[in-house]
Computed example of a mutant assay.
Amino acid sequence: MANIKSAIKRVTVNNKKRANNGPQKAEMRSEIRRVESLVEANDVENAKAALQNTVKRIDKAVQKGLVHKNAGDRQKSRLTKKVNSL
């Protein structure tokens, strides 16, 4: 464990941020998997609705710095292509 006061604070702050970021990233990945499963099932209407929620979730993750901007754009692009192919 760190001895310096600022280092101790950094450790606690990093632990709090990690505790908050993990579930948000997991939820984003779950949304992505949900859209992909709907695409495989050829469910057009539900896939489009799920895509909107997923794009919103990805944008929030990018805004908070959980995912790099280009990675978020790439995920959105790939999902949109899959949904539009239906």
Rank of each mutant, 00 (worst) to 15 (best):
M28W: 03
K48Y: 07
N3P: 00
R78Q: 14
V13C: 02
V35C: 01
N84M: 03
L51V: 08
N42P: 09
N42F: 15
A71Q: 11
N46S: 14
N70L: 08
K69C: 13
A2L: 11
K48P: 02
L38S: 01
G22A: 12
S85E: 08
S77I: 03
N21G: 03
T54F: 05
K17W: 11
K82P: 03
V11K: 15
D59Q: 02
H68D: 13
E36V: 00
A49W: 06
V13M: 06
V35E: 03
N14K: 08
V83I: 12
R18S: 10
A50S: 14
S30P: 02
N14P: 10
K48M: 07
A2Q: 13
N20W: 09
T80Y: 08
G22S: 00
N15T: 07
K16F: 04
K56T: 12
N21Y: 03
L86S: 14
Q63Y: 11
M1F: 15
M28A: 06
A41C: 10
N42I: 09
Q52F: 05
G22C: 07
V55M: 15
V55H: 14
E36C: 07
N53M: 03
V13S: 03
S30A: 02
G72P: 04
L79R: 04
K81T: 11
N46D: 15
G22Q: 10
A19H: 07
S6F: 12
A71W: 05
A61C: 07
V39D: 06
V44G: 04
Q63N: 14
N14A: 14
A26M: 05
K48W: 04
E40T: 13
R29E: 12
K16I: 03
L38A: 04
N21I: 04
L51R: 09
V11Q: 15
N21Q: 02
Q24L: 10
L51I: 08
P23V: 02
A61E: 01
A50G: 13
A47D: 06
K48Q: 09
K76R: 14
A41S: 12
L38Y: 03
R10A: 11
T12L: 15
V35I: 08
Q24R: 10
T80L: 06
Q75S: 06
K60Q: 13
S30H: 05
V11Y: 14
